[in-house]
Design a protein around this nucleic acid. Structure first.
Lengths: 252, 252
DNA sequence: GGCGACGTGGAGGATTCCCTCCGACTCGTC
DNA sequence: GACGAGTCGGAGGGAATCCTCCACGTCGCC
């Protein structure tokens, strides 16, 4: 990983940004034959879907089945379940890599903070498999959060925003990380109403902003109670197990 | 369920508050013999623990094993996995029942809102099995959110708080529910640093409060980066599977 | 203390999943 | 078109899990 840049969002999320645009040529990750690469792609897609639904322990056989490949193909590409998780992690990370540049280009420190919060929340919300993957990564590879480059950037942003009088003085970069994780968790609970999290993020930002009176209008509209119910409890189309219909019926 | 009171937090969370202090005497839930009741208790405790760790799909045999009972005992008490989930749900709900009275006793509408947010968030954070249980409940029993009594209470609170000029005008009761769910999710990610969520809740409340300048000090202290990392990715003491040590080593 | 009903534990068949091994197939090249 | 290396798919042993059934143990009442 010589040509990778290790970044960290407040110590929790490690970002690997490639200098070349090629997807990780090392690691034996890139099979040569065309069909092999396509199979790998399909495996990754299905893995992400299934992990989003069933967690990191999703059945590997099922993933292979849905990707229309044999189990052996899966094991050849990802000898261990953790290798699969790592692959998904790296892909997600690559998607996030551009955020750093956007932040650097922000006109003010506060704008940078807004951008940081929004982009990272967006990233978290976009992929419902991400929480499972991140959680697992922390178990697999606990030391990966060591590089604190990105965190340093955010910390600098925080300091400048405070000096500008744009950010309340009693929070720090880690608080922001916690907040963005929190907002991002709204995606976990079922992506249904896209963009609803922006309302909540706006409220959070209003809780951080100075002067406190300077509030923009909330984006979007509030959810109806029914929509909230559907959104919070990820109502996926397929019940987790086929045999779920019986039992208890009219009960409580 | 004649003597139960069905309440709803913004359509998502149903509260059952018993008028008598006895735990659900109907439903065949209460075995007569002492040892039987103790076994049931122990099953519930272990089930909660294991579901918190492994999700709703936690092994039933393992639950029985840890509770030091045979599998049959588990199945006798909870013929279906969903019956077990329902039992855990009812118990958690009972713990929440007092919140309504507290809210009613609040001196101002805003105080009621603060209380609502704090108590419900606390409830969510306290039990790491809860998110799994709630999610599953929504699949099992989608109609249970019908009673909107509690939601009506909150909606009334919101209206009064707005009239008092204590709550910003562009949010509604559902927004509050989303926010409290969001804050509560901080517990999901590993309960480690108890009370950290109060900081984030305070920030959220500041984003809601009017006049906007009236901010109390944030409770607690910010997390160190290392602590955040540990807290967000639920670093439980035991890896999910025993065989997790090998693979990938120094790699990325 | 004894009896009966209630409750218990664990064996066991069916299913699913993990992971490996090997014969068959396909891509890319000559 | 043919060849070979690379790739594929599925069979199959082992383990875990689900859930049922039935002989045995224990509680509580008499």
């Amino acid at each position: 990983m010589e040509d990778s840049l290790r970044l960290v969002i407040a110590g929790g999320l490690t970002i690997v940004s490639m200098t070349s645009s090629e997807p990780t040529p090392q690691d034996g990750a890139q099979p040569r034959r065309r069909d092999a690469r396509q199979n790998r792609e399909r495996l990754i897609v299905e893995a992400r879907t299934l992990i989003a639904q069933n967690g990191v322990d999703a059945s590997l056989e099922e993933i292979a089945r849905r990707a229309d490949v044999g189990v052996a193909t899966l094991y050849r590409n990802f000898p261990t379940r953790d290798d699969l998780v790592r692959a998904l992690y790296d892909i997600a990370l690559a998607e996030l890599a551009t955020v750093r540049d956007e932040i650097a280009a922000a006109p003010t420190a506060w704008a940078g903070i807004e951008l940081y919060m929004e982009r990272v929340a967006e990233w978290l919300v976009a992929d419902p498999a991400l929480p499972h993957i991140l959680k697992r990564m922390e178990v697999i590879d606990p030391g990966s959060g060591k590089g604190t480059e990105f965190q340093a950037v955010i910390a600098g942003l925080v300091a400048r925003a405070k000096k500008d009088g744009a950010l309340r003085a009693d929070v720090d970069a880690v608080d922001l990380a916690v907040l963005v994780t929190m907002v991002g968790s709204l995606g976990t609970h079922g992506g249904g109403h896209t963009g609803q999290w922006r309302r909540q993020l706006a409220i959070v930002l209003d809780g951080l902003r100075l002067p406190a009176t300077d509030r923009p209008r909330l984006p979007g509209r509030p959810l109806a109670a029914r929509e909230f119910q559907a959104a919070v409890h990820g109502v996926t189309r397929r019940a987790k197990r086929a045999a779920s219909g019986r039992a208890a019926g009219s009960g409580a």
